[in-house]
Amino acid sequence: MLMPDDDSAKVRVRNAIAKAQSLCGGSEAALARAAGYSQNAIWQANKKGRMTPEMAIRIEQATKGDVPRWQARPDVFSPPLSGECSPAFGDKASHDASPLRHPIREIVGAPERAQASFGKVA
């Protein structure tokens, strides 16, 4: 599922990628390594101003929540309600204990599981 094709959506994605790049070492390659993508995939997302929900999740994880998924993809993810607290990123115990779960994470799963399933023939 890709984003709607409007200028404000493209600006949001490009801003999210720029912020994530600066947090992950300043380059597309550094962000790509941290998020589990190729440098070309990050370049394409930035150039086109579009990213998949999975990429938004993985960038959020790579930046430890400093670039939240809903900033790049508000059409898919909602920002937290005021007073609502998200679990600490990278803390599996907090995530599992949280009653708030994101449906897309349940579908996509952790990046390690997603990477492990690529390339396998059923």
Rank of each mutant, 00 (worst) to 15 (best):
P68M: 01
I104C: 05
A116D: 15
A93W: 01
S78Q: 14
K120D: 08
S22F: 11
E84F: 02
M51T: 06
P80R: 03
I42H: 04
A32E: 09
Q21E: 11
R73E: 03
N40P: 01
V67E: 06
P111T: 02
G90Y: 02
A9W: 11
A93D: 11
P111N: 08
F118G: 04
W43K: 08
H102T: 15
A16P: 03
P79Y: 09
R58A: 10
A122F: 07
A110S: 12
T52R: 13
D6K: 14
R50F: 07
P68K: 07
E60T: 01
W70K: 10
E28I: 01
G25P: 05
D66C: 07
A88R: 14
R50C: 05
G49M: 04
A45Y: 05
Q44A: 14
F89R: 02
R33W: 11
Q39W: 00
G65D: 00
D96A: 13
A29M: 13
H95Q: 14
G26F: 03
R14S: 09
R50K: 15
N40Q: 11
V121L: 12
M55Q: 15
P99Q: 06
G36N: 03
T52E: 05
N46K: 10
G119I: 04
A122Y: 08
S27Y: 06
D91N: 14
T52W: 00
R101F: 12
I59K: 08
P74D: 08
L100C: 12
D91F: 06
G83V: 06
D6M: 08
V108Q: 10
A72P: 03
Q115T: 10
I104S: 10
R73N: 08
V11S: 14
A93T: 08
P53S: 07
R50E: 12
K48L: 07
R69D: 02
A93L: 13
H102F: 08
N40K: 13
I104R: 11
A88K: 13
A18H: 04
G109S: 15
S8I: 15
Y37K: 07
A93F: 01
A30R: 14
A110I: 04
V67W: 01
S8W: 12
H102W: 11
D6H: 14
P99N: 02
G90Q: 05
S86I: 03
P79W: 05
A62H: 07
G36W: 07
T52H: 10
A122G: 09
E54W: 06
P111M: 05
G119L: 12
A88W: 08
G36A: 11
A9Q: 12
Q44I: 10
A32L: 12
W43L: 04
D75Q: 09
A9E: 11
